[in-house]
Computed example of a mutant assay.
Amino acid sequence: MPRTALIVIDMLNTYEHEDAEVLVPSVREALPGITALLKHARASESPVVYVNDNFGEWRSHHGEILRAALAGRHKDLVEPVAPDENSLFVVKARHSIFFETPLAYLLGQLETERLVLCGQVTEQCVLYSALDAHIRHFGVVVVADAVAHIDADLAEAALRMMSRNMSAHICEVDDVAFDA
Results as ranks from 00 to 15, higher is better:
50 Y>P: 01
31 L>W: 10
149 H>E: 15
122 T>Q: 06
37 L>I: 08
53 D>M: 10
158 A>F: 07
9 I>M: 10
110 L>Y: 03
149 H>Q: 14
96 S>A: 03
175 D>A: 15
87 S>V: 06
70 L>D: 03
163 S>K: 14
78 V>F: 04
52 N>I: 04
158 A>K: 09
138 F>I: 00
99 F>Y: 13
45 E>V: 06
23 L>Y: 05
102 P>G: 01
73 R>K: 13
156 E>N: 15
91 V>F: 01
168 A>G: 07
137 H>I: 00
88 L>K: 09
33 G>K: 07
7 I>R: 01
145 D>I: 02
84 D>R: 07
118 C>H: 07
116 V>P: 02
82 A>S: 14
175 D>K: 11
7 I>L: 14
107 L>M: 01
63 G>M: 10
14 T>V: 09
95 H>C: 06
5 A>V: 02
152 A>C: 08
89 F>S: 11
85 E>T: 13
102 P>F: 02
48 V>A: 07
107 L>S: 00
11 M>F: 04
124 Q>G: 11
128 Y>G: 01
3 R>M: 12
16 E>H: 09
155 A>W: 10
159 L>W: 09
24 V>S: 12
64 E>H: 09
65 I>H: 03
160 R>E: 11
90 V>C: 02
144 A>S: 15
56 G>Q: 12
135 I>N: 01
162 M>T: 08
121 V>Q: 12
66 L>R: 11
126 V>A: 04
41 A>G: 06
101 T>L: 05
134 H>F: 13
173 V>S: 05
76 D>L: 10
109 Q>A: 04
37 L>E: 02
45 E>Y: 10
30 A>I: 11
154 L>S: 14
22 V>Y: 10
32 P>W: 11
4 T>R: 12
79 E>L: 13
49 V>T: 02
102 P>R: 02
134 H>R: 07
83 P>V: 07
146 A>M: 10
79 E>G: 05
163 S>E: 15
47 P>L: 06
179 D>M: 11
155 A>V: 13
82 A>N: 09
54 N>A: 12
117 L>Q: 02
99 F>E: 06
40 H>Y: 03
20 A>F: 09
27 V>M: 15
162 M>F: 10
47 P>F: 05
151 D>E: 15
27 V>E: 03
48 V>Q: 08
6 L>W: 04
134 H>D: 03
2 P>S: 14
127 L>I: 01
146 A>C: 10
167 S>G: 14
47 P>N: 04
10 D>Y: 08
6 L>Q: 05
103 L>Q: 00
11 M>V: 13
66 L>P: 04
36 A>C: 04
166 M>R: 02
55 F>K: 09
93 A>G: 12
173 V>T: 15
98 F>Y: 08
15 Y>W: 13
1 M>L: 09
27 V>F: 13
120 Q>E: 15
9 I>C: 02
127 L>E: 08
96 S>M: 01
30 A>G: 12
86 N>T: 14
166 M>A: 07
126 V>Q: 03
74 H>P: 03
53 D>E: 12
6 L>N: 06
51 V>E: 05
19 D>N: 15
59 R>M: 11
93 A>P: 00
